[in-house]
Design a protein around this nucleic acid. Structure first.
Lengths: 93, 93
DNA sequence: ACATTATTTAGATATTTGTCTAAATATACA
DNA sequence: TGTATATTTAGACAAATATCTAAATAATGT
């Protein structure tokens, strides 16, 4: 689990918005792009950052690439945040 | 609650390390600075970012400024992360 | 094989961010 | 009041990041 990649990815508002869009279900790169004013290229960059953090998974379907939330990292992130703030009852086990 | 400030603050590894140090208890700016190779000025900058996100609180004690974790935001952050990943059972209530 | 559509990659540029040094502010104490 | 200590602020600079345009890759259909 790449802690730094995760926090970096979450730091950008557009990327967080991408994640929220994906909550409603998978979307192709093109569909996602419609929700933003950026060029598709810029969006693609954000996808790459999200992928580097394992926050999304991709899957090709014909000419499209379908993005979906990787909710398995959710636990990891929760733990990360916990560990940042849990005021030292941590360390158990 | 300043969502963007919070995520931005957490994105830097030095700042996350500061938070972890503060888990063990309050520390003065100077004490914190010892744990890093940066100049005190640089650290001070990080403090400012953490404060802007309400992640730490400060309190002057004589010539020192004492930093401590503001664990009340912890809930906020948990919720933020939840909302990013909770796959749409959200919206209840 | 060629043209079309969907997406990513490369390279350029502007903005933001992290760090530094030097100067400013604030408290303590003689 | 003056000096020492602790911390922050200001300004400069380099590195990282977000965005763009143009070119490259990949699949589809003719």
């Amino acid at each position: 689990m790449k802690q730094q990649a995760i926090f970096r990815a979450l730091a950008d508002p557009s990327r967080r918005r991408i994640l929220k869009l994906l909550q409603k279900g998978s979307m192709t790169a093109g569909e996602l792009a419609h929700a933003f004013d950026f060029t598709q290229a810029s969006l693609s960059h954000h996808f790459a950052v999200l992928k580097a953090a394992d926050l999304v998974c991709t899957q090709r379907r014909g000419q499209n690439i379908v993005y979906s939330l990787n909710s398995t990292v959710f636990e990891d992130i929760s733990r990360l945040v916990m560990n940042l703030f849990a005021v030292q009852e941590g360390r158990e086990k």
